[in-house]
Structures are given as structure tokens and as C-alpha cells.
Design a binder for these strands. Structure first.
Length: 422
RNA sequence: GGGGAAAUUCCAGAGUGGCCAAAUGGGGCAGACUGUAAAUCUGCUGUCUACGACUUCGGUGGUUCGAAUCCGCCUUUCCCCA
């Protein structure tokens, strides 16, 4: 078995680990590991992709993933990495969200119950009696130590409620149960989870688990210009196609900073390290590398067909970085037949609206502007085009002649929709 | 339990009776330059049937010709003392 830690490290997944050498030895035989996901929304976003991809790598290497969807802990709310208390969710909301998360995780991981599984920590957290919990678990925690944890210290500035303060105990308890009942010996999470993970390892030992347990944290992914990762024109980039269309998803990856391409290819695709090194060796193929990043990331999340369509659509709009296919890659992007699959987002108008409907209204309908005022500003700023014609007059209406040649409505350079008459 | 302070437009944060749709910064959007990149420069950034009108400054009720600004009550948050 190859050293999977080595692979993860080379690809940029590892921020910290406990017991580095022992962990490597530990992973020479098949093990079970887990990551917790908060069901605070019905979809994950690209920020969660780091743990998901890490889990997928480990599963490929023969280990067994457990995804904990924190039904129990979501009712409490993890204070780590947040500056404010999170709003509480109702049981129904959490349940709905869990279903969504399961579908999305299943695209990257085999969670059939054998090779891997999804577990809700409701089953052991909700039945806990307060007094019993305090006696069994609470007595192993030192307030003095908890107060020194980075995640807690940060919150002492702004305030921390008791319920949030307890989050660490619950997560540690999760780890203990998973180790005890599922032989899950490794917990992974974002770097802000370090304190919680270490607390879990400690608890396992104090509760009498003989075997060593381990922790791995992932780095917080930032864009290289220091801004938050995972934002686009439309806001958060989600994994669900309803919230972020495959085309927008592709565009998000296609538009990352030059300096982020290599790092993101390593983290968010399964292309071999050597190939990624070649692709990004000099700046010459940077745009092809971005196309491949977009294509591969979209393929993983939305499937091959959606990736082909997204790529083809983008190409018909913006052109192609490597039309001759000169750049070597193992990606299936090589086989995309552009003409056939292009898939244009559309905005519909009725027959009788031609010559009637103003561009202000059309822009709002296409969701390029949230209000008439915003649409007006967009036009006044010179950002609206119908075909090749720049719209300058906010009063202008959509005429039948506009649709004859090039029926594409554009807002800025990157947003476009085809106007179709119904 | 007692005392003090604060709540402003996406965020941070000015404004303390009319000149306030509300400074400044960040973010966002658009334009120029480019490579669907970055950096830089410029404009915009409450809503509308738009050179005018309307609604915003935690909630509510007052004072006033006129309030984000003054007063009462309520809610929330923070700080100090116990």
C-alpha cells in the first residue's frame, strides 16, 4: 500500500496531524476514519470539498469513510471559527438538510454501508441524560484547558454561551462512540477543528480505549489574494445544481486566479501529480489548465455529461484555450465535441412582449439585476449588450430585430442568456 | 441582583434636531487595459411609473413646523461591580 499520508501531503490536504509516524504506520492496513458535516443548509458548498476529496483519496487507498452528519451537534452549534453564535435549527430543517448532504457526498464517496457509511449522531446524542453525561464524560474535561483552546479564546472576546461551550464535549464524545462501536480510529476536520479533535483523542484514552486514535486537520483554503475561497458573482458556490448550475460551477473554477490553479488542481481533481506539475510548469498553458480544472471539478460534482455541456457552452462564448489539443492531459476534456453539446442558459419572453418589454424588466427577469434600479445602473454603466449592440438607453425596449442575428443578452462579460420567444 | 454603554444602509464605522438616502473604508457590480487571470485606473452601489416621488438608521409611543439625531417604554448585546 502506498503511503497515503504522503499523497495527501503532496496534494496539499494536510495542515496538522497527531503522531505523524505512528499515523503512517497505522494506515498501512485498512482503517476507518470520519469527518463531521454540519447540516446547516440543504447543500454543501465548495468549501466542504477539501474534506470530501481527502476522504475520497483515503477510500481509494482502501480505507473506510464515515461521514457524520451532525444532527445532534447541529442542534448545539459549533463555535469554532465563528465570531457569533449560530442560529439554531429546527429538527425538520436538519432532517431535510441531511438528505441533501447524503446525495452530494455519495457522488464522491461510496457510502453503501459496506465500503463506507453515513451516520447521524442523533442516535447516541439525543438519548443522553444530562447527569449521566456529566458524570461519565464531563468529569474528563478540564475547564482550565478548554479555556486555553484557540477556538474558545477567540470567542471569549465576543461572548460564548454555555451551550456552545459544550460543543467540544459532544464532538469528543462522537469520536469516542465511533471508536468504540465502529473501530473508527481517525478523525479529520478543518484546521479550526484541532481543539475538538484532540479533545476526542484525549477522551478516548480517558474512557479506557486501548488503541491509539489519530487526528488530521486540513488547511483553511483561501484564494491567494487573501480573499475568501468559494465566492463567485452569484454568491456562494454550492454543490447542488439547483443552487449553482453546472455552467456557473464550471465558470467558478475556470475563473480562479492564475496563482491558484496548481493548488486547486491538486486539491480538487484526481489528475496525477506529475500531470498537474507539467500542466502548470510554465505560464504558457495556464488557460488550458484552468479549463481542465473547471471540467474535472464539474465532472466530479455533476457528472461527465454536465461537464461536457458546461465546457462547450463556455467555449462557444469565450473561445478555447487549446483548440488543437496540443496540451497533454488524461482528462476526458479531450473528447468533448463542442458543436453538439453547447447548452445555453435562457430567458423567455412572450410573442406579444416584443417591442413592449423594456430592457430593465428583461434584465431583472434574466436575474442579472435584482431590481429595476440595479438594471438601470447596469445599463448606464455600459454593461449591457443585446447581441453586439450596447444598450445605452434605460428606456429601450426589446425589438424583434434584436433577436434576428445574435439573440444573446449580456450583462458584463461573463453573464449571458439567450433570449427565446415563446 | 446593582451600575454603565451600545444597537446606523451587505460588513466595518461616522453622523448627535433641518445642508442625511446618510461621511470614510471594505466588499460587490460595471467600464478601460488583458488571457473569461492578477494588478491598476474610472464610474456606480435603498426603491419606484425617475431631472421628481417614496421608504430606511433595533421595536414602539411621544416632543417638534421638522428627528438617525431629544424624551418614555420594550427587546437584544457588551462592559463593570456583587
Amino acid at each position: 500500500m502506498t503511503d497515503i499520508i504522503e499523497t495527501l501531503q503532496n496534494r496539499g490536504f494536510i495542515y496538522q496531524t497527531t503522531h505523524d509516524q505512528e499515523l503512517r504506520d497505522h494506515l498501512r492496513t485498512p482503517r476507518t476514519y470520519y469527518v463531521g458535516f454540519d447540516p446547516t443548509a440543504d447543500s454543501l458548498h465548495v468549501g466542504s470539498l477539501v474534506p470530501i476529496m481527502a476522504m475520497a483519496h483515503l477510500q481509494k487507498a482502501g480505507h473506510k469513510p464515515i461521514a457524520i452528519v451532525g444532527g445532534g451537534t447541529a442542534r448545539v452549534g459549533d463555535p469554532s471559527g465563528k465570531t457569533e453564535m449560530r442560529k439554531m435549527l429546527t429538527a425538520e430543517q436538519i432532517e431535510q438538510n441531511q438528505a441533501g448532504l447524503h446525495t452530494q457526498l455519495s457522488r464522491y464517496l461510496n457510502l453503501d454501508g459496506q465500503a463506507g457509511r453515513l451516520i447521524n449522531n442523533d442516535q447516541w446524542l439525543l438519548g443522553l441524560g444530562y447527569v449521566d453525561f456529566l458524570r461519565e464524560v464531563g468529569c474528563h474535561f478540564s475547564i482550565n484547558r478548554m479555556l486555553t483552546a484557540e477556538s474558545v479564546k477567540l470567542r471569549l472576546e465576543t461572548g460564548l454561551s454555555f451551550i456552545e461551550f459544550n460543543y467540544m464535549l459532544l464532538q469528543a464524545y462522537d469520536f469516542y462512540i465511533l471508536m468504540r462501536d465502529y473501530q473508527c480510529s481517525i478523525q479529520m476536520g478543518g484546521q479550526d477543528q484541532w481543539g475538538n479533535i484532540v479533545a476526542g483523542i484525549d477522551l478516548c484514552r480517558r474512557m479506557g480505549i486501548e488503541e491509539q486514535t489519530f487526528g488530521i486537520t486540513f488547511p483553511l483554503i483561501m484564494n491567494s489574494n487573501g480573499t475568501k475561497f468559494g465566492k463567485s458573482v452569484e454568491g456562494n458556490v454550492w454543490l447542488s445544481a439547483e443552487r449553482t448550475s453546472p455552467l456557473d460551477y464550471y465558470q467558478f473554477w475556470r475563473n480562479v486566479d492564475d496563482t491558484d490553479v496548481k493548488r486547486f488542481l491538486l486539491l480538487f481533481t484526481f489528475l496525477p501529480e506529475s500531470e498537474i506539475a507539467q500542466l502548470t510548469a510554465d505560464g504558457a498553458n495556464i488557460n488550458r489548465a484552468k479549463e481542465i480544472l473547471g471540467f474535472e471539478a464539474t465532472r466530479l460534482n455533476h457528472g461527465l455529461e454536465a461537464a461536457q455541456q458546461a465546457f462547450a457552452t463556455a467555449v462557444t462564448r469565450f473561445g478555447q484555450a487549446d483548440p488543437q489539443g496540443e496540451v497533454q492531459t488524461s482528462s476526458a476534456i479531450r473528447e468533448v465535441a463542442i458543436q453538439k453539446v453547447a447548452d445555453m442558459p435562457e430567458v423567455a419572453v412572450q410573442h406579444n412582449e416584443l417591442g413592449e418589454i423594456g430592457f430593465l424588466q428583461l434584465l431583472v427577469r434574466a436575474e442579472f439585476a435584482a431590481s429595476n434600479s440595479e438594471a438601470r445602473r447596469l445599463i448606464q454603466g455600459g454593461g449591457v449588450k443585446m447581441g453586439e449592440r450596447v444598450i445605452t438607453d434605460p428606456q429601450a425596449r426589446l425589438e424583434a430585430s434584436d433577436l434576428a442575428v445574435d439573440p444573446i443578452l449580456r450583462a458584463g462579460k461573463k453573464r449571458f442568456k439567450k433570449v427565446v420567444v415563446q
